[in-house]
Amino acid sequence: MATVDLKDIKKSFGKVDVIHGVDMEIADGEFIVIVGPSGCGKSTLLRMVAGLETITSGELLIGGKRANDTEPMDRDIAMVFQNYALYPHMTVADNMAYGLKIAGMPKDQIKAKVQEAAKLLQLDHLLDRKPRELSGGQRQRVAMGRAIVREPSVFLFDEPLSNLDAKLRVQMRLEIKDLQAKLGITSLYVTHDQVEAMTMADRMIVMNGGVAEQIGTPLDVYERPQTIFAAQFIGSPSMNLMDGRIDGGQLKVNDVSLGPVDTREGDVTVGLRPEHVFADSAGVLRLNVHQSEPLGANTLLHGTLEGKAFTASLPGVHRMPGNDRDMSLNFASENLHLFDPKTGKRI
């Protein structure tokens, strides 16, 4: 159990700056998800907390103590790797016991701990197998087990589910979250999957190009995205953007008026989530539908609106609209998001 504080953490590989300064205070027992597209520096950030990469500048505190120069084994962390990194020549039990063995714990105590963790993860009957005799999901559990037996203060996960099939991923997602809640261990979890981020996180860091675009609870990020990037990255299908203008207190896209707003005048980027529009013959938005994707519970309508691509997600089944393929949509004004087109920041 420990807090983790990141203070303006930066990382460069030679001349290349990869992390441009991340600031965050993580409370004891919190589940933090680091999410972002490939190459944005998620793993690098996690590996700096693990001690597998040096920190170029800034300060890392684990449990209130400066840990910048501490060896991984002395940071009281455990890490679950993307490819599990199980020792191929050791049995499941030995894999889980290895860290404890090095720490010099007596044999019978190790055995008890391994048994306990195995039970928790339903691995009891697999303890004598080698990793190659296990399925992907079972290997994943062994990797978790190896982390659990050490009773670390901080869990680190680097895309632990990305090698599993979709169904197993959903199941393991719930199991990991459950386990973390039960054990109450502070966790950092890296993923590029926004669904994992939304469902698992107490708070998430949305990363892009080595910058933390937004740090907040999943609903925070969903309801009040602070940047265009965060707005588009979280939510599926992603948020529609339109080029708008505020003129005399009126928000306009081309000649369509979207209602009064009280912010600064001038150009703005208008964001509206697909699920926040509804069919309404009196609506001001006119969507020219090109394609419809019936998903059962809802239907995705893809088309253009005021000359730009736009997607609407409507509940229930919708057929393609009539001959001209035009459809009127409406929205609630509190669901509009306004961004500065130059800085990408929320207005």
Binding site: A50, G51, L52, E71, P72, M73, I77, A78, M79, F81, Q82, N83, A85, L86, Y87, Y98, G99, I102, A103, R146, R150
Partner: peptide, 12 residues
């Protein structure tokens, strides 16, 4: 490499 890193985290 992950294997070496896992061992490092395990304290080897």
């Amino acid at each position: 490499d992950e294997l070496a890193e896992a061992a490092r985290v395990d304290g080897a």
